[in-house]
Nucleic acid binder design. Sequence first.
DNA 1: TGGGCTTCCCAAAACGTTTTGGATCGCGTT
DNA 2: AACGCGATCCAAAACGTTTTGGGAAGCCCA
Lengths: 335, 335
Amino acid sequence: MSSLRALAQTLGLSITTVSRALDGYGDVALATRDRVLAAAEAAGYRPNSAARRLRRGLTEIVTMVLPAGPGHFNEPLYLELLGSIGERLAEQGYDLTLIAALPGPDELKTYRRLVDGRRTDAIIVVRTRREDARLRYLTDVGFPFVAMGRSDFPEPYAFVDGDGEAAFHDAVLRLAALGHRRIGHLAAPSAFTFAHLRRSGFARALRQAGIFGAIIEGSADEAGGYRAAGLLLAQSAQPTALVCATDSMALGAMRAIRERGLIVGRDIALIGHDNIPAAAFSDPALATMELPIAATGRRLAEMALARIGGADPRDLTEIKPVEFISRASLGETRI
Amino acid sequence: MSSLRALAQTLGLSITTVSRALDGYGDVALATRDRVLAAAEAAGYRPNSAARRLRRGLTEIVTMVLPAGPGHFNEPLYLELLGSIGERLAEQGYDLTLIAALPGPDELKTYRRLVDGRRTDAIIVVRTRREDARLRYLTDVGFPFVAMGRSDFPEPYAFVDGDGEAAFHDAVLRLAALGHRRIGHLAAPSAFTFAHLRRSGFARALRQAGIFGAIIEGSADEAGGYRAAGLLLAQSAQPTALVCATDSMALGAMRAIRERGLIVGRDIALIGHDNIPAAAFSDPALATMELPIAATGRRLAEMALARIGGADPRDLTEIKPVEFISRASLGETRI
DNA sequence: TGGGCTTCCCAAAACGTTTTGGATCGCGTT
DNA sequence: AACGCGATCCAAAACGTTTTGGGAAGCCCA
């Protein structure tokens, strides 16, 4: 209905002029431009996106591939991230589309379909792994992408990440300052870079403070934390503090600790990461670390747009500081 | 590069024939068809979606509008929902796009942009309200949509919803059977239909069992539950059980209860709704009710596709049963 | 007067697909 | 011998936009 042609007809102008008026070219008389804008407004004109996309060879779509599936999908973090990314993209007239792909042999198929079918202008890769075939593939075909999180991938790529290494290093030193001398770490699967970095920061701080530590790996959810904490607490030299790779794991650990008759914050200090909503309301409230998700999402969106515009990925890397949030689970000074 | 034209050229066929061969028309000789399919496969041909969309007047996109913003966005439920909707849509070659829109005066603008710009073939509306201008608008302009949740909107529309009324009715009767005689309800804002229905079921059960109850409304998150529970517990006749509109509220209530020196599951029974991951790991584990989210998402996707195909919304309504999940917060039999 | 420069406008091509409305050929039927 | 018909194929139009490559006035200056 309300096409350029119709608008042009009612205005007695050519399609070209109307189009250029709407796009704000200096090419068209001011009076004409105002007339066109008024008419477009009145007619409720919205350019047909398919036509514009076909002509310009751009989809005006950014796609985020979610690590779907049990234990992966239900992280509150991602929803907030989606919200902020979408908002930022919308400011530029871009849409955010979502697609699920489990890690595994078929994972790349999803990416190939996106790339070959020109279904999107850029891809946002999340949950990066140390060895990540997705980054290799996208780099090889020269497709614009942005990663949330880092990878061992050697070539330059755009990313935003929290400084998990520093955050966990800092957390251990805090515990040490409180008097803790045996500290455990519930690590997430080390194939994920974020897990690896947090674990490294943890280990570095241990060495630096010259104190004793143990690391046990579990899945990054409540069940994983529960199981890993159970194993750790069964050891002879029980830790007096536990630093967990994620809040979900920490909540699982809380239960394991309770079941052993110990009290979080008194017998064992507990720290998580993410600051999920439930963390502030656990018993006791969970000390945690927070990466500002909204800002991260916006930055990811901006980087994606920049990559579409041809920006060099070398200029698009950002490691954000992580804020420590002290809560009751941290306990009082020890000794 | 790999366009129909290129394919046709290498095959010595017309664009028409190649196109029809790929679409499986009976119009083309079997031998030719095989030849085309093989060539397409070899060339890695993927139809340009913008061109196809322009020509067919379909976007092959379904859009979900998320109630963004604080206290709305961070519900784990929606992420899982997105995953299952997306998966089901992908089976039909449809993409799922996401857009954020806060309830408020500008909310409809978002919907208008979607509709007028033909940016999507169908819209999924979530967090329905009793008075919901979105349903009115979409119905008036005749745009295909599917709602997650019901509304007082009088005209027929497609929806999937959990039977919250029955679920809360049932929950109260369970508590009554355990001996509870004073039961409180932490309601979510009653403008939302889900909150209204859960409250109705609660109230109906009270009348039926002839027992005493109190209802306090709060926002549907931890903070709202904390506040509402605080108010309720400050009353003279303290309830012995609390039924909360959402798990998040229940987790907030837990903290309020603890702060008064009461023990959940002993002094006060507590029931939530949603079965969020944190519910199983709270202290004590939270009894709750669960709507199968994955199935709901799939159904929503199917309904959206059906509406795009022109199906009558009258045939697309489904109220799913809600499952009760008993956990420690329910406590033992009373009296 | 005429050439050159702006300013404003436009016709037509192009993006890659689907679909319409035949065209061609071979074969069996009348 | 002419006709009809099924089986294959195809040229061209169309979807609605952006962009290219000018064209027509109007004005200034020589």
